[in-house]
């Protein structure tokens, strides 16, 4: 393993080795990116086993299309986009994306400053998993992945206004749930 790590210290070297279909490079790629990409998949799918399946399929896509990566932008950003698309495809095939237009409005405004430092990654992941699928998907794409509403509308086959309203509702729900979790932690 030490030898493998020494071979691919540079991202460019790793990409070249992957382009040649080098099995060592593929194993190293898994070791380096699997945990991070699994977290991406879990954010969309919530179930870890299903997320692992999607991650592996996404890695196969990365190996298949590695020749398309021309070095423009970061390799991880290019790969993350492929993995995200794979997760969205899985959601689409299982009809998980249902835009919750009739979801109740959140009127409670939570004062958000100063409480987030007490929250761990696991808490935030759990809060995110409680969101309806449509809210969660739009929030993930916009707030974490950095997609525009136009891109989200194209990816999910919805209007931009629908994307905006979904994001607004997602934020409100997350604020509410985070404050609840924070309150519970504070009491404990």
């Amino acid at each position: 393993m030490v030898k493998i790590l020494q071979l691919f210290t540079n991202e460019g070297q790793l990409v070249k080795a992957l382009q040649k279909g080098d099995p060592k490079a593929q194993r190293y790629f898994y070791e380096k990116y699997s945990a991070r990409m699994l977290a991406v998949c879990v954010r969309y799918l919530t179930d870890q086993m299903e997320a692992e399946d999607v991650m592996i399929e996404g890695f196969m896509k990365v190996f298949e299309r590695i020749d398309q990566y021309k070095g423009e932008g970061s390799f991880e950003g290019w790969m993350r986009r492929l993995i995200t698309n794979e997760a969205l495809m899985r959601l689409r095939t299982r009809r998980h994306i249902e835009i919750d237009i009739d979801a109740p409005e959140v009127h409670q405004q939570v004062h958000f400053e100063g409480i987030e430092n007490n929250l761990e990654v696991e808490d935030l992941m759990a809060v995110l998993a409680k969101l309806p699928t449509g809210y969660r998907t739009v929030f993930n794409l916009y707030a974490i992945e950095g997609y525009s509403h136009a891109e989200i509308a194209e990816q999910l086959g919805i209007n931009e206004s629908t994307s905006k309203s979904q994001l607004h509702r997602a934020r409100a729900l997350l604020q509410q749930m985070v404050s609840e979790v924070e309150g519970l932690k504070w009491k404990a």
Partner: peptide, 14 residues
């Protein structure tokens, strides 16, 4: 909210 989740979860690892 976006900033909190992005900062904590973007590079999260499982």
């Amino acid at each position: 909210v976006d900033e909190l989740f992005s900062r904590k979860l973007r590079d999260a690892e499982i």
